[in-house]
Simulated assay, not measured.
Amino acid sequence: MLALKSGNGRGVRGAMPSLFGLSLSAEHFVLPRLLRKPVRILSRVGRGEFTPPPYAASMLTVSFLAASSLYGAYVGGHFPALVQGVTARSGFAVDQIKVSGNRETSEIDILDKLQLDGWTSLVGFDPEEARERIVALPWVRSAAVRKVYPGTMEVRIEEREAFAIWQNGNQLSVIEKSGAVIAPYTGGRQAMLPLVVGFGAAERAADFVAKVDAYPELAARVKGYMRVGERRWDLRLDNGITVKLPENGVDAALTDLVALDRDDALLTRDISAVDMRFTDRLVVQLTPEAMERRQAELKAKPKVVKSTAGKRI
């Protein structure tokens, strides 16, 4: 309440308070309670009745120097560092870091992106800038950094999901389903991922691998998916056989291939390639060893016929 009405007939005790000769009271006005004491002190100073406490000059000097230092630190851009130093030594230094959600990203890399030292304070630490640095790591899709006072920092990340290893020339990279490169291939647990080879294979691999996965008995034997001329695919099996699929009608070709292997054990024979690019015929290429044996058999066959003919005569 900023004003109070005085009661009728109430007298004013003593002299009216004044500040530098100006009256601060009126017949129907009283200052708020919080302002009364400061105003009385100022009025005493104006009348020359105020005696400063001991060491007042020293205290004012120290206050002026402190204010000047703070202003200089602010103007010079050193104020955040000053706040960090003061608050860190006041019990707000980061002494515990909790990291969750990381499988491929090492905690050392995450701690490096936090840019902490022994006296980093939570008070002046910017979690958004730290989050942006962590998201820049190859495997990190999203990140959240949270301050828990007085001295704990929590980091939670979501990593990108590896789909395959992409070989482009001599370079091996781990890719997502979309074909986006995550990081260079370094071995380890990524060795179990499917291998896709060739220019343009990364962007189209997900759909083609899904078609092959529809035939589990065939998919279990595939070691590589090779993109040829950005038009069609070849399959490289675990026994070294290459299956050349057509540009169109891939689903039908895969169905025929599985049926031939189930009925005639085609993919376990001594062959090096199965060419399914032609709609009217299936071409099978023998291995060099099988070719030599076949040629030897063909050379031996006329001799057997000639020998039999001699006996009949």
Rank of each mutant, 00 (worst) to 15 (best):
E107F: 08
S18F: 12
A273P: 05
S272I: 12
D109N: 08
A191P: 09
L70C: 02
L282V: 03
Q190L: 09
K244T: 04
V155C: 01
N102Y: 03
G310M: 13
V155M: 00
P194A: 00
D112V: 09
L286G: 03
Q167C: 04
I182M: 07
G151H: 14
S106D: 06
D126E: 02
T279M: 08
M59V: 03
D275P: 00
M291F: 07
Q190A: 12
G21T: 10
V140S: 05
M59C: 09
P246V: 01
K5N: 11
T287V: 05
V181E: 06
P52Y: 05
G14K: 07
V140N: 04
N239K: 06
A206C: 07
L298I: 04
K311W: 10
A164I: 00
R312D: 01
L2E: 06
S63M: 10
Y74W: 14
R204G: 10
M192I: 15
A210D: 01
S18E: 12
T268E: 01
E104Q: 09
G200D: 00
K5F: 13
R141Q: 13
A191V: 12
R231L: 03
D112S: 15
A143M: 05
L42P: 09
I165L: 04
E289N: 14
T105Y: 11
L4F: 10
S68L: 14
A220C: 12
F278N: 14
R189K: 14
Y71T: 09
E230N: 11
A300R: 13
L35Q: 05
E129R: 10
R262E: 05
F20L: 15
V145T: 07
V83F: 08
R103Q: 13
L122T: 03
E297T: 01
V94Q: 04
Y55Q: 09
N170K: 04
R160G: 02
W166H: 08
L122D: 00
L282W: 02
V140W: 06
P288A: 03
P17C: 11
Q190T: 10
K147P: 07
S100C: 10
V45M: 12
G229K: 13
K177C: 03
V86A: 06
A183I: 01
R262G: 06
T186P: 04
P127E: 00
I41Y: 07
R293V: 11
E230D: 02
A206H: 14
A191I: 11
A164E: 00
L4E: 00
A56H: 07
R281Y: 00
I110F: 02
A93Y: 12
S121A: 11
E49T: 07
V181H: 03
E132F: 10
R156W: 04
T105L: 02
T255K: 15
S106V: 14
